[in-house]
């Protein structure tokens, strides 16, 4: 699948990415995060090799930026809590582990356990549905467990 001109990518994903950021950060902080998400996407866009998983890619960038925003102290906003184990954010603990998974499983695992998206959101990000997202995440986890057991 070839990459579309950036305008089309932006046009297709901006509303859902913005809605996602509003859910994560509240409307005020979502605006800056929205701009930063698509500027970052623009910086990386010509380095992409194909047009698959663009939606998941957009969600991954938005999630990272939401995490960064979340870390920045601001007294005026109510923040959703993100689960952490040892002080590092969950996505940072997961990302390198998941690196060797096939792309869809990797995206599902990272978005579920790293960014705490629900399966409906992950399904939307991957262009499938909640059931497929749940299956991809469990397949990824099984694969990681097998690898750990080796």
């Amino acid at each position: 699948m070839t990459l579309p001109p950036f305008e089309r990518f932006y046009d297709e994903h901006r509303e859902e990415i913005y809605a996602f950021l509003v859910r994560r950060l509240g409307r005020d902080r979502a605006e800056d995060a929205f701009q930063e998400t698509f500027l970052r996407a623009l910086r990386a866009y010509s380095k992409l090799r194909h047009g698959e998983h663009l939606r998941a890619w957009a969600y991954t960038i938005a999630s990272r930026i939401a995490i960064d925003e979340h870390r920045r102290p601001r007294a005026d906003a109510e923040l959703p809590e993100l689960s952490t184990l040892d002080g590092r954010p969950a996505f940072a603990q997961l990302e390198h582990l998941a690196d060797e998974l096939p792309p869809t499983e990797r995206a599902a695992v990272v978005l579920r356990y790293g960014y705490d998206l629900d399966y409906g959101e992950i399904g939307a990000a991957l262009g499938s549905n909640a059931t497929a997202a749940r299956q991809a995440a469990s397949a990824g986890i099984r694969r990681l467990r097998r690898k750990e057991g080796q």
Binding site: R14, Y18, A19, E31, Q35, F38, L39
Partner: peptide, 12 residues
């Protein structure tokens, strides 16, 4: 549902 406002779109 909060749509992307024309101002935000223009800003980006």
């Amino acid at each position: 549902m909060n749509p992307v406002s024309p101002e935000l779109d223009r800003r980006f």
